[in-house]
Design a protein around this nucleic acid. Structure first.
Length: 269
DNA sequence: CTCCAGGTGCTTG
DNA sequence: CAAGCACATGGA
């Protein structure tokens, strides 16, 4: 059991803002599965309470607690984006396990949060290890190279994404992942999009939610709508134009702007 | 039963 | 480039 004092932070909005999928709300806690680690965490006012296979250092990085929000809040006010921060305050960009993040967002294409969670739960049951914690059964996230059975991938209801996952599984290992951490944004994006089933959007999600590139700006249908509404007087605008605009307008704050707009759009859409 | 969902890849103008 | 379409499958 440990405690961490936090400010400008909401565990609920961070966990539930669609960047991470393997969480289970039980008895007032969020049970979290990150690769082989299972732990539980809850927030009471400005206090985070955690227990299980984790430590303070990990939690701080995982939940983005080390990010300095003052600068972003100032930036957002300047750009007249207050309303999105005030509606769901305390969202942070998480820093997730890369492999788990990659597989998650490959599953996300033409899908929805609930189904993504179904896919990940089944994949973990079929390819992961059973972990008992608090008298409950969880399944670790499958290791790279372990998604090696196409039929089982299909049984996990991944549909047409099964082939993508099968091929990615053959292309990605720990060395591949280590290298990804060493290179800059552009190069990492180039490497990621060379994987089957990984386009610019999925790549940007991994770059943002796992590799910490806060200048990434994943453009999905929600962000597209929000951006068209806010900056293109409601006119249909190509994803390419939206991304270019965001890069120019938000720069290093792209990732945070995206996450606040996304959550707002999804909750009020 | 039909339509759509945190897209991607492939094919055509 | 931009537009159109197929791709599996659960849920509304």
């Amino acid at each position: 059991m440990g405690e961490i004092e936090v400010n400008n932070f909401s565990l609920k909005y961070t966990i539930e803002s669609g960047q991470f999928f393997r969480y289970y709300p039980i008895d007032g806690w969020y049970y979290i599965v990150s690769r082989n680690n299972v732990f539980k965490i809850k927030q009471e006012d400005n206090k985070l309470i955690y227990e299980g296979d984790c430590n303070e250092f990990f939690i701080r990085e995982f939940l983005g607690l080390n990010d300095n929000m003052d600068e972003f809040i100032k930036f957002a006010k300047n750009k007249d984006l207050n309303k999105f921060l005030e509606k769901y305050p305390g969202i942070r960009i998480m820093k997730q396990d890369l492999w788990q993040c990659l597989v998650s967002f490959v599953c996300s294409s033409a899908s929805n949060v609930k189904k993504i969670q179904l896919n990940l739960n089944l994949l973990s049951q079929y390819f992961g290890k059973q972990i008992k914690y608090d008298n409950k059964i969880f399944y670790s996230f499958p290791e790279p190279r372990s998604l090696n059975d196409l039929e089982k991938l299909k049984e996990a209801k991944t549909g047409y994404r099964a082939n993508f996952l099968f091929n990615i599984n053959n292309m990605v290992d720990e060395t591949f992942i280590r290298n990804l951490r060493l290179v800059k944004y552009e190069k990492a994006k180039e490497i990621l999009t060379s994987l089957p089933g990984v386009g610019e959007k999925v790549a940007d999600c991994v770059l943002l939610f796992s590799l910490g590139h806060k200048n990434a700006f994943p453009v999905d249908v929600w962000i597209k709508r929000m951006m068209e509404e806010l900056y293109f007087s409601g006119e249909k605008t190509s994803i390419k134009k939206i991304r270019e605009f965001a890069e120019e307008e938000f720069g290093e704050h792209c990732g945070y702007v995206q996450q606040y707009l996304f959550h707002y759009g999804r909750m009020n859409g």
